[in-house]
Design a protein around this nucleic acid. Structure first.
Lengths: 205, 205
DNA sequence: GTCTATAAAGGGATAGAC
DNA sequence: GTCTATCCCTTTATAGAC
């Protein structure tokens, strides 16, 4: 089934690639139009404004990630397995779209209003799915005591920072793209170990 | 000794405040001029271009931080004390200039050339001051084995991310500015504990 | 050194023809 | 739906008077 590419979809997919894979976060509408091989006016025709295109693309991307994460935390696996799978999804998804975190930080974090718009539901989410099971683990004695808020921030820090600081890390350790990617993949085990002070089991089904 | 403020210095200090304390990372030359109470043309007169002003301000700020960090790592204290003091300096300095990390990320990280320019010396620095003593600690058995590169990235992640993600964290945990600042201060102990899997001693002189 | 006025460039949005 | 032409706004940089 080879379909003639719908212009609207074409623009959206191109924007996604330009922003999240090529890392041209400051791309102009002209650049995106050129890349997609369409006239610049069509961006306005379909998305009304550059800002609207941004918003649409980001919303889709966040939604895709969130679906995957939700299905993990809505399962009834043990807490540590869930965290392990979360690390898996988060890292793999960001290896695919290396500049998505940068985009979120440069475009969203600057503007508290935009931020609330996109991440309003994240709060209750974290609180519901991480804080109570974390407290239970601590009560059971299966991990050492830690403030849940710091636990969450530690986890997010060690996941996100290496992505945002990609050029910095590559420069510091003389990593080419391949070595950097390998480094990211390794971090799954590293982060698990730091969070729980125990090795990540080989097979979590 | 009350001196008449030199216009050049005035502009520089104002830019520093606008960028790093007020967080107006996209401030135009007009905004900076207004804030400083000078004519906009003077910015070009003293700094030739907006970019040059950026560069000058950032270089000074990085240099100030680096001096402090250098004096810590050039001492002959035990390794863990050095890290403890580094956390101290890093966090306190960024509580003073809450948007400096954001500035580095939105202005510098995007552009690999700028990045190299500003952080070329950081590589050898980290390698010299952290990797060898870390390996010794591990050999001595005073901390559990860890890849030095991941150790460095873990540390930088847990230091920097909470600063860059300030609006996100405030929203997620409903922190006002005071609570957020308190949270940052707490992180000194938290990060030390995560890195070394032991409590930060009360008094490191 | 400091000001006003103006040039020049860049980018987003829109009207109107096809 | 798609294109061209044009408008408009923002912002930086500079020329020239004081």
């Amino acid at each position: 089934m080879i379909e003639a590419p719908q212009t609207e979809t074409l623009i959206k997919e191109t924007a996604k690639r330009v922003f999240f894979q090529k890392g041209l976060l400051k791309a102009t509408t002209q650049q995106i139009a050129d890349e997609a091989g369409v006239n610049r006016a069509l961006i306005n025709y379909y998305f009304r404004s550059r800002d609207q295109l941004f918003k649409t693309v980001l919303e889709e991307a966040i939604h895709e990630t969130r679906s995957k994460v939700d299905s993990i935390f809505n399962s009834d696996e043990p807490f540590k397995n869930k965290i392990s799978k979360y690390l898996d999804v988060f890292i793999d998804r960001n290896v695919e779209f290396p500049y998505m975190q940068n985009f979120i930080f440069t475009e969203i974090m600057q503007d508290p209003e935009k931020m609330k718009e996109h991440f309003s539901r994240k709060r209750s989410h974290m609180m519901k799915h991480i804080v109570p099971p974390l407290k239970k683990e601590i009560e059971k004695g299966s991990m050492s005591p830690v403030d849940p808020e710091h636990f969450i921030v530690n986890m997010m820090s060690m996941c996100s920072y290496p992505l945002i600081a990609k050029p910095f890390i590559q420069n510091m350790f003389s990593y080419d793209d391949k070595a950097y990617k390998k480094f990211l993949k390794e971090r799954k085990k590293v982060i698990y170990k730091v969070l729980f002070n125990e090795e990540l089991p080989e097979q979590i089904p």
